[in-house]
Amino acid sequence: MRTIAEINEKIIRQRAVVLTTEELKARVVEIGVTKAAKEVDVITTGTFEPMESSGAIINLGHTDPPIKIRRCWLDGVPAYSGFGAVDLYLGASCAVETTDGEEVRERGGGHVIEDLIAGKAIHVKAQGQVTDCYPRASFETTVTRETINQFYLFNPRNLYQNFIVGVNGGDRPLFTYLGPLQPRLGNAVYSNPGAISPLLNDPDLQLVGIGTRIFLGGGIGYVAWEGTQHFPLQKRLANRTPIGPSATLALIGDAKQMDAHWVRGCYFKSYGPSLMLGVGVPLPVLNEQVVEHCAVQDKDLVAPIVDFSIPRRVRPTFGLVSYAQLKSGKIAIEGKAVRSAPLASLFFSRQVALELKKWIEAGTFTLTEPVSPIPMERSFLPQDRRTDF
C-alpha cells in the first residue's frame, strides 16, 4: 500500500518510478502484477481525440466607456455573452457566421481557441446593451492571449470511458461526428484509443475524482466535475470495463499555459468544426488492484458496432468487437470484412502519456488527492416527452 503523499515525496526527489500504461502492460507480462505493483509508483495514460463538448471562458477586459456585451464574434465565430459584461464562452463546435448569418462550417471555435493558444491575433466584434452602467453600444478590436484577462478551457464533456464504432448499412455516404461513413458497410470508425485510454485503465474511477490534476492541452488542468452524459451504469465486462459509452469528465485548465501542439481545431466534412485535444491522466499505484486494472489489453476491451443509417437515438448494432480487432485494421460484420480506422490519433495519445511521464520524472508535476469522488450511480435520461406546437 502507498499513499499519494508518499508518491509525491518520491516525485519531488525525482526518485519516482513512472511508466506509461503501455510500458506497464509490457512489464506485467514480464514480471507479473505483484512485482510490478511493488516496482512502479505512477502510470501515465493519454489520449488525443476530437472532443467537441469543449470550449473556452474568456474575459476581454472593460472598455472605456464600458460595454455590456450581448452579441459577440471572435474571428466570425459567435461567442455566448449572456452573463458578465465582458465575459464570453466560446464553444469548440460553433461555426463561423457570415455577414448574412449563414454558417461557414470549415472553421469554428476550436480553430479560434487553437489560434489564441498559439499567440495569434483574433478579431473581436461586439454589440452591447446600452445601460447607465454600460453606455457603449458597440466595440471592435483585435486581441491575443496576452491582452485578455482570463482565458481557460472549461470542457463539459471529455474523456469518454468508452465509445462506439460507427458504420453505415445504408445506400448513401453519411457525414457524421465520426467522419464520413461509406455506404453498404464500406468502413468502420472508432474514436476511443482502447487500452491506452485514461478511464479504461481506472474502470471504477477509484483514482480519478474532482480535483485530480491532469495533463490538459500541454498545460496543467483539473477534473472539475462529472461530465455531461456521464453514464457509469453502462453494462460492464468481468474486468469492470464498460461495453459502450460510459463515464465522462468535465475538465478545466488555464489555456494561457497550453501549447497549440496539443490543442487543434478540426473540421468534419459536412458535419462541422470540433477540437482535437490531448489529455493525460496520471494513475498512482496505491495497491496491486491499480496495476491489475492497468494491465488490461485491447483484446479484453469491446465496443458496440452502431449503424448510423438508422436516424434514431437508439440505433441497431452489429454486436460487440474488441479493440484488438479494430486496431488490426479490419473487422468482420455479418461475414463481410470491413476496414476499420481510429478517429483518435494513437501516435499522439502515446505522446501525451510520454510527455506526462517526463513531467513527473522531472519533479515538476505532482499528484493530487481528489476532494470528492465522481458519482458512479448516474442513469442516462432520454428526452422522450413529445410536445406538439
Rank of each mutant, 00 (worst) to 15 (best):
V96A: 04
A238F: 10
A37G: 06
E23N: 02
M376Y: 08
R105V: 05
R350W: 05
Q229P: 01
S270R: 13
H62A: 10
P65G: 10
N287E: 14
Y190W: 11
A188F: 03
G166N: 12
E355T: 15
L205C: 09
L90Y: 04
A250P: 13
Y80E: 09
A324R: 13
I7F: 04
S372N: 12
G280R: 05
L286I: 11
K120I: 00
L277N: 08
A36V: 15
N201F: 08
T45Y: 02
G84N: 13
R313Y: 08
P180G: 08
H230M: 04
G170R: 03
P173F: 09
A95R: 07
D41P: 00
P135L: 01
I310Q: 10
P370M: 06
V86T: 15
V167Q: 03
L354E: 15
L346T: 02
Q234F: 01
E6R: 08
L356P: 00
L354F: 01
P370T: 04
I374S: 08
R386W: 09
D300P: 03
L199H: 10
F163Y: 15
G32S: 05
V285P: 04
I57G: 05
K38N: 14
T20F: 03
F348D: 13
I122C: 11
V296S: 06
T147M: 01
S372T: 02
R136L: 15
N8Y: 12
A26S: 12
V77K: 07
G329C: 02
K25Y: 02
A195M: 09
A362E: 15
S349M: 11
L181K: 12
G82L: 04
G84L: 07
I7Y: 05
E226A: 13
V314Y: 12
V285E: 01
S345M: 05
P273H: 03
G179C: 04
P373H: 06
F389D: 13
D204A: 14
T21W: 11
N192S: 14
R27W: 00
E146W: 05
F231M: 11
D388I: 14
Y190G: 12
R315C: 07
G219M: 09
F215N: 08
L159C: 02
R71H: 12
R136V: 01
I220L: 09
S349I: 07
P370A: 06
E146F: 07
Y177W: 12
K38W: 08
K299L: 10
Q206V: 06
E9F: 13
M1E: 04
N162P: 01
V124H: 06
V314E: 14
E334C: 07
R105I: 06
I331N: 03
V352W: 06
G128D: 01
P370F: 10
F389R: 10
T228E: 12
A37V: 08
E6G: 14
A255F: 07
S138T: 05
F389I: 15
H62I: 01
I43G: 10
C72D: 02
G46R: 13
F318W: 12
N59R: 14
V223I: 15
A332Y: 00
L216D: 11
I11N: 10
A247E: 14
A85L: 05
K38T: 04
Q229E: 15
A56F: 03
E106Y: 10
Y190I: 01
A26Y: 03
P135C: 05
G61R: 00
V338A: 13
V124P: 00
T176I: 07
I148H: 00
T228N: 04
G61T: 07
E9W: 11
A362K: 15
H123L: 12
R213D: 03
K358C: 08
T141F: 02
